[in-house]
Design a protein around this nucleic acid. Sequence first.
DNA 1: ACCGAAAACATAGCATACTATCTATAATTT
DNA 2: AAATTATAGATAGTATGCTATGTTTTCGGT
Lengths: 143, 143
Amino acid sequence: MTFSMRSSAGYLTNHLARLFASGLQARIRPLGLSTGVFPVMLQLWDRDGLTQKELVDRLGIEQATVANTLARMERDGLIERRGDAEDGRVKRTWLTDQGRALRDPAIAAADAENSDALSGLTEAERAQLLTLLNKAIATFGTR
Amino acid sequence: MTFSMRSSAGYLTNHLARLFASGLQARIRPLGLSTGVFPVMLQLWDRDGLTQKELVDRLGIEQATVANTLARMERDGLIERRGDAEDGRVKRTWLTDQGRALRDPAIAAADAENSDALSGLTEAERAQLLTLLNKAIATFGTR
DNA sequence: ACCGAAAACATAGCATACTATCTATAATTT
DNA sequence: AAATTATAGATAGTATGCTATGTTTTCGGT
């Protein structure tokens, strides 16, 4: 029985994800951001005051992971968390001014990382890759 | 400035990698394997007695990460490590019988995970995805 | 009004990855 | 030969992810 890493989608996806993460990390670190924080910030830049549950639902990351990430973000001054007046269980997450100010440079960094990473592909290939990644992700939803 | 997760290759790759990892994890856990250990085992099933340096070079993972992974693998009885007679710095890694015996079921599990994950894609799309992933990985090598 | 189930969040413990640094040994230079 | 540099591996510290479990608050049914 043989197994080739070059023809394993799982292996290649993991490898590429690590390369992406390290590239993005280098770009956003000067901003005081990190890769785990980035997806949360994207949500909050889009809309503030989300509950932890809402973030979990939007991000596809486990609740415990989100809780820990939010704690680091609060420690680092990116967000503030305040309880909800209506429901005592809920904590809503608000960007600090510092966190809000990072939006444009951070998104520019991510765009740059994406285009550099795909600079070896033609425009058609890039589009095809996005399509296939989305398709594979969707396949996981149906099992 | 906008940013769509569905059109960010980095974001999608990370998401898909987590889905792959969790799927593979569920399949190989009954064997006593985990996702971090798997790539190391693939190398060792192919050839035994590699040094840590040789594993690092083949895996594209940092030396410190490999050192920690090997320590867990030794603790769990998958490998043994013995010093090299020629070079006092070197430690070579050998599969235990237990580790060697896992090869076929583990590879079957990975194959099953890959084909399930890509079951929503046509044969042409699967081939295309592998090509594009390899191409993107190669692009990182050239910068 | 109460009790049990459910929901929201936190915490514990672990695996996997990174960077940075230390230790031990080997190889090279002077 | 002694000093310097390089290499192999280990360790420390942190981030990011997971599962499992605990705590607090709310809600539904009686």
